[in-house]
């Protein structure tokens, strides 16, 4: 059910991946995602996938967790695979009615599926190993130069923190309301699309009402503690780059360079 969605969840731990400076972790994740689009062949993709799986092992996050978070995205992955399989240009090897499957199609389908898996695994690893608060702190620090352009960096980061902070709360709330309505005989799991959408109304209305109530209460609580935006605000936890961070970064950059180099491999 809703609890199975692990995207955006955080699994606290004490591995090198957990300890890495969040700013560096964020930048490296971005680098990894960009590299994924620079890699064009299967060997490179397999290697990229191996890299991310290795990081999962290092972070001691069970692969079961990753598999679970991918399950809801399975339709998208399959859709992409099928699309690539049939619509890639190339010499057809099998032809069924108007659908042609070419060697290139198979090749692209596999590369694309691996790329999506890597994208999910890589970005999930960031949130699994970094608490949302630390992560937004990193975003705020990285975006700070933009404050010169009068971009409200602190406010944006605060909004992001609040949004992330309330995802689990809202999931819990949704589950509670769903249970309450199910206890009154709501049938949420059967019927056609229209019936299902209608059946959700008793869940959505209380959910909206309680979100507004929560927002109100939070704003009040923040004002009571004299929150007045980012000016002059100091941090309890200062971020420092350590020697270990430098070493990790160098290793990671080397791995990325190898991945990019696979472009020149023939397969």
């Amino acid at each position: 059910m809703l609890r199975d969605i692990t995207i955006g969840q955080h699994f606290p731990g004490d591995s090198p991946v957990h300890r890495l400076d969040p700013r560096i972790k964020l930048l490296l994740t971005l680098a990894y995602i960009i590299v994924l689009f620079a890699v064009h062949n299967i060997s490179g993709m397999v290697l990229a996938f191996a890299v991310v799986l290795g990081l999962y092992l290092a972070a001691k996050i069970p692969l079961k967790v990753l598999a679970r978070s991918m399950r809801p995205l399975l339709p998208i992955i399959l859709f992409t695979a099928v699309l690539n399989l049939f619509f890639a240009a190339g010499e057809p090897i099998v032809q069924i009615w108007i659908f042609k499957i070419s060697k290139e199609g198979i090749y692209y389908a596999i590369t694309m599926v691996l790329r999506i898996l890597c994208l999910i695994a890589g970005s999930s690893l960031l949130t699994y190993t970094t608490s949302p608060i630390v992560l937004t702190d990193a975003v705020e620090r990285l975006l700070r130069p933009l404050a010169v352009l009068h971009l409200p960096v602190h406010e944006l980061a605060m909004m992001m923190t609040i949004a992330l902070r309330f995802i689990p709360t809202l999931i819990e709330e949704t589950e509670k309301i769903m249970n309450a309505q199910k206890a009154r005989g709501a049938d949420l799991d059967s019927g056609n699309l229209m019936q299902r959408v209608k059946a959700l109304i008793p869940v959505l209305i209380p959910l909206f009402i309680s979100s507004f109530r929560r927002a109100d209460e939070l704003a009040m609580a923040m004002e009571c503690r004299c929150y007045h935006g980012g000016d002059g605000r100091t941090r309890m936890k200062q971020l420092h780059v350590t020697g270990q961070d430098v070493v990790s970064t160098l290793i990671f950059c080397f791995a990325m360079a190898v991945l990019v180099a696979t472009r020149w491999l023939p397969f």
Partner: peptide, 29 residues
Amino acid sequence: RRFRFMVGLVFQYPEYQLFEETVYKDIAY
């Protein structure tokens, strides 16, 4: 679902589950 009608469950703070336009409709849900 048959058992859900046999065992009626009132959760903590059940007032947060109200959603209908009128009290009558909500009780009738």
